[in-house]
């Protein structure tokens, strides 16, 4: 039972991981595409789950989790995340979120967090979010299925909370969307993990890249 509680703890938006500052390209997309209805928003979030989270973030998390105490192997995953994330705002955002998460866990005393933080400070590791999640959530006692679900849930709620803060939908509507997408997330979490990191999200990449140079922004990406 404790594994489930630990996954809920880490998926909780109250945990200080810094993710509130990122819209995952949604702000840029809304600015470029105009008003976005509930259906379109749900489609964008579902596509991001299918074509980025499941095929990229989840893969990096699972591999970092499986590296156990081998931080050289963790660094290799980190470098692959860097090389495969073409859109600069997503690379920057992933590193910032990862830095926030590992710093919080280092303060809590989660096993493995201090060592990873030291490597990031030395410049040996980059600290991308899914890599940090894999390391510190293993150290915190989450089992792998719980870590995968927590990661997907964090990604999904990131879209929902960004949509509310951007005024695209109301809070209750966002929760209804979230509920409809939970089975999508559950099904994706059960699919075989690809051997390599990949993604297909050119629309969000473009939105995030254009948005990064915008003068008026609510979110970092």
């Amino acid at each position: 039972m404790i594994e489930r509680l630990l996954a809920i703890w880490q998926a909780d938006t109250a945990f200080p991981s810094g993710g509130f500052a990122f819209s995952n390209g949604l702000e840029g997309l809304a600015a470029l595409s105009g008003p976005m209805g509930e259906g379109e928003l749900e489609g964008v979030a579902a596509a991001a789950l299918r074509h980025r989270w499941a095929s990229a973030d989840r893969v990096a998390l699972v591999r970092a989790y499986g590296a156990e105490d081998d931080l050289d192997a963790v660094e290799a995953v980190d470098r692959e995340v860097e090389a495969t994330t073409l859109a600069e705002p997503f690379r920057t955002g992933s590193r910032r979120n990862g830095a926030g998460l590992v710093a919080a866990h280092a303060r809590i005393g989660t096993p493995g967090a201090e060592d990873l933080l030291a490597r990031i400070r030395q410049g040996r590791a980059l600290g991308h979010l899914p890599v940090v999640q894999g390391v510190v959530w293993r150290g915190a006692g989450l089992d792998l299925p719980g870590a995968v679900l927590a990661s997907g849930y964090v990604a999904l709620t990131g879209f929902a909370t960004a949509a509310v803060r951007l005024g695209l939908v109301g809070a209750v509507t966002a929760q209804a969307m979230l509920r409809r997408l939970l089975p999508v997330l559950a099904a994706l979490a059960d699919t075989p993990v690809p051997a390599r990191i990949g993604s297909f999200s050119p629309r969000l990449d473009i939105a995030a890249l254009r948005h990064a140079r915008g003068e008026v922004r609510l979110f970092s990406n």
Binding site: A83, I206, L209
Partner: peptide, 19 residues
């Protein structure tokens, strides 16, 4: 086109997406 450009990873150059 709907597109954008940005710095590619590891100083490789510039990456452009197009739709």
């Amino acid at each position: 086109c709907f597109g954008a450009a940005g710095a590619a990873p590891n100083g490789a150059g510039i990456a452009v997406r197009l739709i």
